[in-house]
Amino acid sequence: MKEILKYALILMTVTLIASGALALVNSLTAPKIEAQKQKELQQGLSNVLCNVDYGIIEKQQLNGHVYYTGYADKDTSQLSGYAFSAYGLGYSSTIWILVGIDTAGFITGINILDQKETPGLGARCTEIKSGEKNPWWVEQFRNKNAKTISVVKDGGTIESITGATITSRAITNAISEKSKILLQQLNNQG
């Protein structure tokens, strides 16, 4: 019995020291990780709201939907567009997309935040050709009406990635569905 107590005490000490060390490391790295996430989000947002590079982006919430409003200038009277995240079930993963639209509902830019699609097929949705800034596939979304887009196979205008119709369709439909909901909500609001 005494032996068990001794062992329990030793194990507890070891785990306490370990947790203490981890708490220390965590407190050192947590601000850095948070900053990384913020930076990624900010970069994504200014990327999809391409005309607000020097403006302000604000986080908004409406009936549980989180979205961001972008303003063209430092003053917040001139609304230039909205950004929101959407997700769709792709071929082998959930694809998260950040979408920017202008006030009329036309797409200003798209950023694929997270995907684990098949390399060489679906994953090409994030492929950037050398010398270019943005992935070539998502470029075709620019200036299209977010509510009505669909892939060619479904009678729309978005060209699918060769051999990856499911991925292409998932992204396209995710954008159109989410923008329909959000714009509806915004209209109701005023």
Binding site: T15, A18, S19, L22, V25, N26, A30
Partner: peptide, 10 residues
């Protein structure tokens, strides 16, 4: 949450 790995394995 930073204790996830150590908690889970134990």
């Amino acid at each position: 949450t930073f204790l996830r790995t150590i908690a889970f394995i134990l």
